[in-house]
Design a protein around this nucleic acid. Structure first.
Length: 597
RNA sequence: GUCUCGGUAGCUCAGCUGGAUAGAGCAACGGCCUUCUAAGCCGUAGGUCCUGGGUUCGAAUCCCCGCCGGGAUACCA
């Protein structure tokens, strides 16, 4: 049981003892004591004044007396206005440090057989263009969220549904057929997803030209959009694809494979992976049966043109189309099918969709529809909705060429990391391979931390000129601190200093050391909070605070040069524990930390 | 129109399940490398927490009317 829980219980007891009232423990508001006051844990006593019918100061003093006498960890207390500041004994903090240091899984909850199985869907790319900054946010959030759920004792299946069919894919295919001249990733040296993406752009260019020509010939814009040869060609390819025309299927498979090979490289670079991949081409027909069942059961209704709809006006929403008049599926239909499929494939307790907030309405409707269809998991779906990444000039638009390409961005950041590192003269003695690995680690650390430290539900701004920064509240700052700690520990080992990892209860701690231990002790709570809030940002901001504190400590105190061996040992144990906490926390964010930088 | 998310320092963001003088980083200015990594540390300056009401002992935080911005809103996925 944590010290907060113990004190909380004892406060309930104290109220009962002093004022003969049984109170709900929810009334007990504990917080960390602000740095400017003496103490570790603070009780806000205002809520108890009605019960005590005494002044805040007197009430606080009476509760303080009781705690001091009945809780061994409470050494003394002081009262400032309505705040009761409790001073916890140093020996308690020493024991916290000892157990944090000794526990290799400090802060993490292990999964057991009884753990919930959570499926996390993320990434979900289209196979007609390469990944961009928006996908990066999705991938990083999805991966980190999975790690957070694991750290809270859940079993996690990471899944990716690849949108590999539809008119947009046919556009790339059409462009390749018309203007491709047999280009392949192999004969051009262009990464497969980029090559296919180039043809998607090419399609749009030609399509626009054709529209302009037709308009010049007297057609309206709407007519021209329907009659342009390119769009007719793409539609024909879609029909052939659905008719399973071997040549079309062959081209589709070939071009998709180029894209997958490209994605694999990007995913590997980003350090994200999946346990199960679904392909929409294989699942897009599944939902239709469910919708027809719903229609037969009277859950849905049919219009004269034979399209099928759901009436959601009772839920305060609109009517939603589920099957077109020609009987084909829409996006929603497919997601119904995919959901059912997944719950058949795995004993899922909780389904999480990592999808942008532009689809809030979609998932709200999906949840209701599945519930109406009688799936008990319907209501429990969780849409992890995150905000857009914006550029200084506004939203990214792939057709206007204002997207920040994922591969380009990573490459550029690696380059900046290398230049910075070389300028600072770090990594001397490293082999080129080791150095390259470290540059990549730093670059990705910067990118990942930059994105993950922001509250997921908020839109965020990415400024290519300014956002690539390695100083201040950044990933490299944290990595640097870790490398410093490792360096100290390496030197300690070189000097054959043995670390005694179990500090005696009587160990004396300087203020800064105490603060560091308190920060470390918050790690498990932080992991839990991140799990409850579905927020990697909670972890990121915690690590930053911890690291800032360590740097102050590092600056203020000598570790290896300390002549008093007891003090030196204490500082080594603290450093080691902080280092371990940094590493574990960063791992949850999907960020690696280097031994040197 | 309706629904929804947001508005905190010049910029990017914390803080938001109500608590003590609203915090960081960047940018600006000034200090600290013969001592464990200066990708660091210390300091100065910078705020009507969008406006206005309400609830409360106490509101950046909760509720309501506005204003501004993003997104969604019946046959794209």
């Amino acid at each position: 049981m944590s010290i907060e829980q113990i004190i909380s219980e004892k406060i309930v007891e104290a109220i009962n003892h002093c004022y003969q009232q049984q109170i709900d423990s929810k009334l007990v508001q504990l917080q960390n004591t602000r740095k400017e006051f003496e103490g570790d844990i603070t009780l806000v006593v205002f809520p108890f004044l009605k019960i005590s019918k005494k002044s805040p100061e007197q009430t606080a003093a009476e509760i303080g007396d009781y705690l001091q006498q009945n809780v061994s960890e409470v050494e003394k207390y002081n009262v400032v206005k309505g705040f009761l500041n409790l001073v916890i004994s140093q020996s308690y903090w020493v024991s916290v440090l000892n157990s944090a240091n000794a526990d290799p899984k400090f802060g993490l909850t292990q999964a057991t057989e009884k753990s919930k199985l959570v499926m996390v869907e993320y990434s979900s790319p289209n196979t007609n263009k390469p990944l961009h900054l928006g996908h990066i946010r999705n991938n990083l959030l999805g991966f980190s969220l999975s790690e957070i759920l694991k750290a809270n004792g859940n079993k996690v299946v990471k899944t990716n549904i690849v949108n590999d069919r539809g008119i947009h894919i046919c556009k790339s295919m059409y462009a390749w057929k018309m203007w491709g001249n047999g280009q392949t990733p192999e004969n051009t040296g262009i990464k497969g997803d980029h090559l296919v993406g180039d043809f998607y752009v090419k399609f749009d260019q030609e399509y626009k030209k054709e529209i302009a020509e037709l308009v010049a010939q007297g057609q309206t814009k709407e007519e021209a959009e329907q009659n342009a040869p390119s769009i007719l060609g793409a539609r024909e390819l879609l029909l052939r694809w659905e008719a399973k025309d071997p040549e079309t299927i062959g081209l589709w498979k070939t071009m998709n494979q180029w894209v997958y090979n490209g994605f694999d490289v990007t995913y590997k670079e980003l350090g994200v992976d999946f346990d199960k991949i679904y392909y929409e081409s294989e699942t897009y027909l599944y939902g239709k049966g469910e919708v027809l069942r719903g229609l037969a059961e009277g859950v849905f209704y049919q219009k004269e043109d034979s399209s099928v709809w759901a009436d959601l006006t009772a839920e305060g929403l609109d009517h939603k189309l589920l099957l077109r008049s020609d009987g084909t599926s829409v996006y929603m239909t497919q997601d119904i099918g995919t959901a059912k499929e997944r719950f058949q494939d795995y004993p899922i307790d909780k389904m999480v969709y990592v999808v942008g907030n532009e689809q809030n309405y979609h998932f709200q409707v999906l949840s209701i529809l599945l519930d109406k269809l009688g799936f008990e998991f319907g209501k429990g779906l969780h849409h992890f909705s995150y905000g857009m990444v914006e550029l200084p000039q506004g939203k990214m638009k792939s057709r206007e060429g204002t997207v920040v390409d994922a591969d380009d961005l990573v490459a550029e950041m690696v380059d900046v990391a290398r230049r910075t590192s070389e300028e600072l003269g770090k990594l001397e003695g490293y082999t080129p391979e080791q150095a390259a690995e470290t540059y990549k680690m730093i670059a990705l650390g910067a990118l990942k931390y930059f994105i993950l430290k922001v509250d997921p539900k908020k839109n965020m701004l990415f400024n290519p000129q300014e956002s690539i920064d390695f100083n201040g509240n950044t990933g490299p700052f944290i990595q640097y601190t870790y490398a410093r700690i490792r360096s100290v520990l390496r030197k300690a080992a070189d000097r054959e200093i043995e670390i005694n990892r179990t500090l005696p209860a009587s160990t004396e701690l300087a203020l800064k050391e105490l603060q560091l231990i308190k920060s470390v002790s918050q790690f498990p709570v932080t992991v839990k909070e991140a799990g409850e809030m579905y927020s990697p940002a909670v972890i990121a901001n915690y690590i930053y605070e911890l690291v800032k504190e360590f740097n102050q400590f590092y600056h203020e105190f000598s570790i290896l040069a300390e002549e008093n061996e007891t003090k030196r040992n204490t500082r080594l144990v603290i450093s080691e524990t902080v280092g371990k906490t940094i590493k574990t926390g960063m791992k949850i964010l999907g960020i690696d930390v280097p031994e040197r930088m």
